[in-house]
Design a protein around this nucleic acid. Sequence first.
RNA 1: CGGGACGUGGCGCAGCUUGGUAGCGCGCAUCGUUCGGGACGAUGAGGUCGCCGGUUCGAAUCCGGCCGUCCCGACCA
Length: 569
Amino acid sequence: MRWSQAFIPTLRDDPAEAEAASHRLLVRAGYIRQLAAGHYTLLGPAVRVRRKLIRIIREEMDAIGGQEFLLPAMHPAEVWQASGRWSSVGDELFRFTDRRGADTALAMTHEEVFASVARELSSYRQLPQVWYQFQTKFRDEPRPKAGLLRVREFTMKDSYSFDLDEAGLDVAFEAHRRAYRRIFGRLGFDLLEVDASVGMMGGSGSVEFMVRSESGEDLVAVCASCGYAANLETARSTIPATDDPAGDATVERFPTPGVRTIADLVAFEGGAPADRQVKTLVYLVGNEPVMVLLRGDHDLQEQKLADALGAADLRPAHDEEIVELLGAHPGSLGAVGVTHVRVVADRELRGRRHMTTGANLDDHHVRGVDVERDIEVSSWLDLREVRAGEPCPECGEPLSIDRTIEIGHIFKLGRTYTEAFDVAVLGPDGGEIVPIMGSYGIGVERNLAAAVEVHHDEAGIVWPMNLAPWEVVVTIVRPDDEATAAAAAEVVDGLAAAGIEVISDDRDERPGVKFADAELVGIPVRVTVGPRGVAGGQAEVTVRATGERTDVPLADVVEEVAARVRAAR
RNA sequence: CGGGACGUGGCGCAGCUUGGUAGCGCGCAUCGUUCGGGACGAUGAGGUCGCCGGUUCGAAUCCGGCCGUCCCGACCA
């Protein structure tokens, strides 16, 4: 490949409004262009990297016995109605009608269609199965952002396992975990495996694969000491018990004019410190109002609430709804004596006495509350959000909270989809067995962007050898010089013949431009051929990652560079 | 969807307050000089100022509506 003929539109300056480092670099180095919010064109270099990513993932999926399929990206509504998701997934599913008026969807995931294929499984002897594909997913994201990290159209490697029982699912799940570890290892990621919320997918277990990055959107609690790691959506910590005053408490209402917040009540004469207050929130879970109680100085982790209640749609109640329900405005709410609304409470409130909370009467609070005695709590749940510095639940060392990008996610799905699609096989005893499913995803272009997040410096992208669009660039300093051009051509041809992916920068540009572009595009090895070197029979080899330069005799440069590339692949 | 900002040659921006010839840098084309770390000179091409409507003799500029994009909050690979 000759640079002068390739279309690699590098830019001198950073594009505007590009916050994520990977986005900025991918645009500037001529890998991607935006068509619309969340929709990107991949240019030549990006396609070459994407192809390598896919090859790596495919190799590891094949290694665990996966079979590659390719399912349609456009689905009739019936398939989604069968699973119930036509109505439950909401606006994230792109929907339209075809010319006959048939409801149609663009696939945001493929559980339904894989399950429908699985209906042809008929015998337990055929299980287990692991099926996968690389296919475009469409998701009408409320807010696409950060370039390729969050888009509305992307390639996903999704795989699905079908097993006879939980033990089989565990095997498939662990096989995927191992495959993912190998894949992300090969991509050069410092991997974080975290417990995660199962969210909308349902099911019994889920592990997210994360890589630390400033551009990430997920927060993960990590223990440097024992390795505990969990998405903030599920993370736990051990916080010291609070000592309450001895003796029975007596509930007593008192006026608190103007007090609206926890902080107000802390400052109020006769108020209470935040950790002796009960914070009262009201959520609408589906259509049912639920009061949510936490210690005054703790924050609710909404996903924990959603998971604990098995709720798909959940939102804070509006002020008017709260007034209608409880007769008071936020700021004066409390659950003491409330019986007509379901009350859930964070575990940290269990056993607490002499607490202060709202009176459900504007401008009044109550003190002397014994939570278990005075409030009808229907369930005690882990609802609070962990904070940095709190003790690790496993070993007690302080947790840190890191920003991360989710690069893979594996789920134990259960039988939701196999039941919905009547997937069943006959067992050895002639009885019917409904297979249990797992589902496993890797976002290809997100991984491409994440790799750039991890592998870059001030000058540009620094591809690892196995992802680079080209392994070597031969920079011809004076392509108009005959001896130089001839020497360079020999190097290029030699490398190509040795099976090295090489691009020759034969552009009529000043050397500085070519050096800068080679670094921006991120090609791991640069061989510089110029009149000065050629005169002395030398070429210069520069390693992108380290900046290391060596002069190598022209006669040896092909062999030496080829060896270096092979060693780094 | 709530909050904030922006939309002017391919890219990055100024001009708008105070209405009157559309400008700068980069990039691009041609020629020359130069060229082992983002060169210089000369000449030149390229814009219905996001769209629609209104005000006005006259709108990039003022007013209204719409669309698009980005950032901050509720979702996910």
